[in-house]
């Protein structure tokens, strides 16, 4: 019998979950060290709330809803979209360009562990962002907070699913070709347009039909609608395009984004820039 000198048996590599946990800690630490990013993420929704609340605070929308109340739902959704979609897409492109993803690739990092680290960062930052925004809207512009436990629960699941869907969209977009710089420009422009299409600044039912249909493909429209269902009185549901809050459909679209997106991104994720 031929015997070979084997190295002592090597234990299996750490699980994706363990790496995901380490990644989340790392992402949070790096986020905290990027002062500009911290200030922008947390201040942007508040500044928008103050600007729109001060200028259009007296307006009343269909259903007798004061504008600040309608706008809080939109800006909460937008804030989540920025901390998820926009910041994730640009950070991944930057990390790829800096060669940080090559290191992860040679370590055999499961893509899903990397994604989970990003999602962990997004969930924490979105929670802090909302915790700062809601009091400003409530005490500054008399916006009522969700009325009961059911509305708070709606707010919770919409925020979590919206954050995750936005993260997945960011990961997907980060896979497009181009430099980190050009991607950042494109993503920012896309995010601004998507906000207008999704009813953040205007009452969604007043938008042209084609705009509504385009918006319905992306998570932001559903995130905004879900937020309205938590912040607006029940009778306002009648003024939605579908005549109701569509909770089932909202959950379905957002969950579909997360699951299909993760499966697709896991298979197509690029750790490095394309071959020269």
């Amino acid at each position: 019998m031929i015997t070979t000198l084997d190295a002592p048996a090597r234990p299996a590599p750490p699980s994706a979950a363990r790496i995901a946990l380490a990644r989340t800690r790392l992402e949070l630490r790096l986020f905290a060290r990027e002062r500009q990013q911290v200030v922008f993420s947390f201040a942007y929704p508040i500044v928008m709330m103050v600007v729109f609340g001060s200028v259009l605070g007296g307006d009343v929308l269909p259903g007798g809803v004061p504008f600040p109340q309608y706008f809080l739902a939109g800006i909460a959704a937008t804030g989540i979209m920025l901390t998820s979609f926009q910041s994730i897409a640009t950070s991944i492109a930057g990390e790829r360009e800096a060669g940080q993803l090559e290191r992860l690739q040679v370590l055999g990092t499961p893509p899903v562990a990397y994604f989970a680290g990003k999602a962990g960062l997004v969930l924490v930052t979105a929670a802090v962002q909302l915790a700062l925004l809601l009091p400003v809207a409530h005490w500054g512009y008399d916006v009522p907070l969700p009325a009961d436990v059911a509305d708070w629960a709606t707010f919770g699941w919409v925020a979590v699913l919206g954050s995750l869907a936005g993260t997945v969209l960011g990961i997907a977009v980060a896979g497009l070709p181009g430099s980190a710089q050009s991607l950042t420009t494109g993503v920012t422009a896309f995010a601004v347009v998507l906000q207008f299409f999704s009813g953040v600044f205007f009452a969604f039912p007043e938008l042209p039909g084609w705009m509504q249909q385009v918006a319905a493909v992306f998570p932001l429209k559903w995130l905004t609608q879900g937020m309205r269902s938590a912040f607006l009185p029940d009778q306002a549901a009648a003024f939605e395009v579908a005549g109701g809050w569509e909770h089932g459909r909202t959950a379905l679209v957002l969950v579909a984004w997360v699951i299909i997106g993760v499966v697709v991104c896991t298979r197509t994720f690029r750790w490095r820039q394309a071959d020269r």
């Binding site: 090597r10 590599p13 800096a98 060669g99 940080q100 055999g108 499961p110």
Partner: peptide, 19 residues
Amino acid sequence: RAWRARIGVVSQGEGAAQA
């Protein structure tokens, strides 16, 4: 992954976050 765990790579960049 099991194969990757057995090789070590020192490429031309260190690949760690600057911060």
